[in-house]
């Protein structure tokens, strides 16, 4: 298992978010959430749909500027998106009008990196996610799994210290999802980035995370370290400790 640093990559103190619907009613999406995520941690935010986990991730990403409380990334208050945070979205966000390598190199392009260099970096990252043969393909020519790999490659190519992922593999079939989980884990082990990964899948959380935070009704109801050795095979998750953690998490999301 990787060593987990203790310095805070993400620091959240008494975060509350209220949305106003079109009819004027107000919805409390997050209520007094406080947590710290250390550098190098792989934290899964687990919860049922509509309980606030995506809102939490979007606040850290800077996509929801209106909130109360204090949210800091690497010590700086979060007001807007920044290059210190890469985001993999739940929806397919690969630009259909750019070739695969240009999609991966997008972050480098807007940061001003010269074209030959950014394409070299893009191809290296396509190689890392198993897509070395399709740099000039259009996204429409790829499967959903391949596009998800492009999204992962794009975020890692931009090299942000913190990676935020919002159920990125939720729409994929089981086998492809497992393969992409392995890709993500290998990139995390290789780069040591801090990852905040939103999921509603307990098994996915247990397979990936060093720590699982359960969000229910806008509040953190469980903050659990996952002390299982990596890599986590199905057998490792079927050990007494693995099953104990599984029951605990299922209990907190209201299934057991």
């Amino acid at each position: 298992m990787l060593m987990v640093e203790t310095q805070s990559a993400v620091s959240i103190d008494r975060l509350s978010v209220v949305f106003e619907r079109d009819d004027g009613t107000r919805v409390q999406a997050l209520r007094d959430v406080s947590l710290d995520i250390g550098e190098g941690e792989f934290v899964c935010v687990l919860g049922r749909s509509g309980h606030g986990k995506t809102t939490l991730l979007n606040v850290v990403a800077g996509l929801i500027p209106s909130y109360s409380g204090d949210v800091r990334v690497l010590g700086k208050p979060v007001k807007a998106p920044g290059v210190d945070r890469g985001v993999i979205f739940q929806k397919d966000a690969v630009f259909p009008w750019m070739r695969v390598e240009d999609n991966v190199a997008f972050g480098l392009r807007v940061s001003g990196m010269p074209k030959p260099e950014r394409l070299r970096v893009a191809r290296e990252h396509l190689d890392l996610v198993g897509l070395r043969n399709v740099p000039r393909a259009w996204p429409r020519e790829l499967s959903g799994g391949m596009r998800a790999r492009v999204a992962v490659a794009g975020v890692f190519a931009s090299d942000p210290p913190i990676l935020l992922a919002d159920e990125p593999f939720g729409a994929l079939d089981y086998v492809t999802r497992r393969q992409l989980q392995d890709v993500l884990l290998s990139l995390w082990e290789r780069t040591g980035k801090t990852i905040m990964f939103v999921t509603h899948d307990v098994d996915e959380a247990l397979r990936l995370a060093t720590r699982v935070i359960v969000v229910s009704n806008g509040s953190v109801v469980e903050d659990q370290a996952v002390d299982l050795p990596m890599p986590r095979s199905d057998d490792a998750l079927a050990t007494p400790r693995g099953l104990e953690l599984r029951h605990l998490l299922l209990h907190h999301i209201g299934l057991e």
Binding site: G130, L131, N133, V134, A137, R140, E141, L142, S143, G144, G145, M146, R149, L172, D173, V175, T176, Q179
Partner: peptide, 15 residues
């Protein structure tokens, strides 16, 4: 051109 384990719903993914 088919990448291992990359899905099969596209022209480049085999299928």
């Amino acid at each position: 051109m088919t990448e291992p384990g990359t899905g099969a719903a596209s022209p480049l993914a085999g299928g």
